[in-house]
């Protein structure tokens, strides 16, 4: 799977047109509020909101579903593992089935899905480097952003090398298994990936320095905020506040 998240950055939607410098904090705030929700009703509403924003962004549903496997892989077992309880140190010890924990598993799944779905309208509606530039403008340390951009760039180099190595290993008859030989091959593969990447890094850094790299990454994008961008941010703040307050009222 290609980890490119900004495949749909070229579409047109109200979220695509929202300036990144305001869009990122808006969505991040909403995500953090959702992470703290505890009421079943409010978590369900938060998932509804996430689906609404996803639909508004016009990002392909198939693309999103293909990326939810990790979330579901972790969440599905919770519907068995959370209700299943063992009573330690009690006279009536042993295994019990606590049905009310199904609700807990359901709430966790709703929260996780809501936050994960919001990642797509947040990051998938603008080119990745523009989102990073916006974070830098928001005051996130420059060194973090630049390392992040380098990492993103290297990902594709690594993935390409990994693909070539896998082909080479298969063509030499490598059969992966849980044995010492397989681990030695995996160790050599990881070592080779690091070695070649470090060699490339040396050359890349020298090439960048020779072109005037001084630790600052400059891109042509200049944020152009109009009043509607601020209105959208205010709307997001209101939603986050309503969810937070509603959750506390719901619990009472």
């Amino acid at each position: 799977m290609h980890p490119e998240i900004d495949r749909y950055a070229g579409l047109k939607s109200p979220i695509h047109s929202w300036d990144c410098g305001l869009k990122l904090p808006g969505f991040l705030l909403l995500m953090l509020v959702i992470a703290t929700l505890d009421g079943l009703g409010t978590t369900a509403v938060s998932l509804g909101l996430a689906i609404y924003f996803l639909a508004l962004s016009r990002i392909s549903i198939g693309f999103v579903f293909s990326r939810l496997k990790w979330v579901l892989l972790f969440m599905v077992p919770l519907f068995v593992l959370l209700p299943l309880q063992y009573n330690f140190g009690t006279a009536d010890g042993g295994w019990t089935w606590k049905s009310e924990n199904l609700v807990l598993a359901f709430k966790i799944t709703l929260r996780a899905l809501a936050i994960t779905l919001l990642i797509f309208p947040m990051l998938g509606t603008a080119p990745f480097h523009r989102s990073m530039k916006s974070l830098q403008d928001l005051g996130v340390p420059k060194v973090l952003i630049q390392t992040f951009l380098f990492t993103y760039r290297y990902l594709f180099v690594y993935l390409d090398q990994l693909r070539k190595m896998r082909i080479a290993m298969r063509s030499r008859g490598f059969q992966p298994g849980f044995n010492r030989n397989s681990f030695k091959v995996y160790g050599n593969m990881v070592g080779m990936l690091l070695f070649t990447s470090f060699e490339q890094t040396e050359r890349l850094l020298n090439a960048m320095k020779s072109r005037g790299y001084d630790g600052n990454i400059r891109i042509l994008y200049q944020p152009e905020r109009d009043p509607l961008d601020w209105v959208k941010l205010m709307g997001m703040l209101m939603l986050a506040t309503i969810l937070f307050v509603g959750d506390h009222l719901w619990l009472k």
Partner: peptide, 13 residues
Amino acid sequence: MPRVAVMSAAFFV
């Protein structure tokens, strides 16, 4: 930065 990024990418991959 590039060296840290190489290891970050390795950790990701």
